Amino acid sequence: MQQKDRRQLRAQFEANRQKFDAANARVTERVGRNLVFALASGLLLAAIFLISVFVWTPLLLVVALLFGIMAMIELATAFRQAGRRVPRIGVSLGGAAILIGAYFWGLEGLLWSLFGAALFLMLWRAVESIIPGWKVPWRTLIADLASGVFTLVYIPFLLGIAVNFVKIEPYGEWWVFTLVLLPVVCDIGAWAAGVSFGKHKMAPRISPNKTWEGFAGAAATAVIAGALAAHFFLQQPWWLGVFLGLAVLITATAGDLVESLIKRNLNVKDMSNLIPGHGGLLDRLDSILPSVIPVFMAAFLIGVI
């Protein structure tokens, strides 16, 4: 009797597992991601972020260094597929200097370290170009240098501004939290509305999964989250949060589309397979990085930075 019960339980478990796998496969086909892996990875990243912001702030620099260097290596590797050589060690060292300068010496340190890192990277690439076997035409060298400087500005410079938010008095940690929260809820709102109602493609040649219905869902969640974050987290008027949410909606969507365009031109689906269900780190930062700009402008205009 017990053996029969065990067989029935095993059969029921196997049937439920098959149903779950089939449902997950349908969702994966629709959204292009393994939802289970994506959720698990997202929760782990969220836990690391929350601990670094609210529990032990010095960990934020460590997290920014780790994520920033890996994202720079992903982008430098992608550039190489397009025939542009961005030195991975050089850009990693320069990016680390930018983040350290921002954390310890604020915006002035951020600007000076960006200047120094750009010179260092350009010198590194120039020296490489005179080594026998690595010589390239001057037009190619200029394209390599421009790609390297773009990598420094796009990733560690913007991350450095975000890290500097934590020093805002008061509520610095909540500014950092809001910066990450708004692009994330935009992504969630776009995904939920797109899966449920998506019919009209936004940019089919660049990002086939994006729809105008998804954009509307992202707009709704961004406005609501922005108003709530401004009132409860930042202690600012709710209407400021509405404008901030709309601004982040534009920058997050643009950042996602630009990275999709880069990946399409390089013929890659993801920058890497580092994060299960998400792709590479840059695939998760693509909407957050450009959103640093409107959040910084809001903080600057109201005089908290």
Rank of each mutant, 00 (worst) to 15 (best):
M297A: 14
P290N: 06
W56H: 12
L110F: 00
E169V: 14
F177R: 09
I73L: 13
I69A: 00
M202G: 07
V304C: 11
W239M: 03
M72G: 01
R264A: 06
L159F: 01
T251Q: 12
A38G: 11
V184S: 13
G94Y: 01
F157T: 05
F233W: 14
L261F: 10
P276D: 02
A22I: 14
G148S: 00
L60V: 02
S129R: 03
R264Y: 14
P170Q: 05
F177A: 03
A126T: 12
I168M: 08
F120G: 06
V63T: 05
R139P: 01
K135I: 13
V185D: 11
F232K: 07
P132I: 06
F79Q: 06
D286C: 11
A216E: 13
I142N: 02
N273V: 00
F232L: 15
R85M: 06
A15W: 13
Q3T: 08
H200K: 15
V184M: 02
V136S: 14
I224C: 13
A97K: 00
P294H: 01
E213M: 10
I142W: 10
A229L: 03
W212R: 04
I188K: 08
L281R: 03
I288G: 02
T140E: 09
A219L: 13
E128V: 12
N24V: 15
P290Y: 06
G109Y: 05
P294K: 00
W174M: 12
L119K: 10
Q81F: 15
W239P: 03
G172D: 04
G90Y: 09
I98W: 00
L93D: 02
A126E: 09
A220I: 09
A117P: 02
G245N: 05
N24D: 15
S291T: 10
L59R: 04
Y154W: 13
L152G: 07
K19Y: 12
I293A: 10
I305V: 06
S129C: 02
P170A: 04
L61I: 11
S291D: 08
D144H: 05
R125N: 11
R26E: 14
I130K: 01
G226Q: 10
F67T: 07
L179H: 14
A162I: 13
T253E: 09
G95I: 04
A229C: 03
G101I: 04
K199I: 12
W175A: 07
T178R: 02
I142T: 08
R80G: 07
Y103W: 08
L281I: 11
N265Y: 05
R284N: 02
W191C: 01
W124N: 09
A102E: 06
A64W: 04
K199M: 07
I250F: 14
I100R: 12
L145Y: 04
V180F: 09
F157D: 03
A15P: 15
S92P: 00
D21C: 12
V166L: 08
R17W: 15
A102M: 01
L159R: 00
F54R: 09
A220N: 03
G217N: 10
F37V: 13
E173T: 12
L159K: 01
G214N: 13
V268E: 06
G83L: 03
L152S: 05
S113G: 07
Q3P: 02
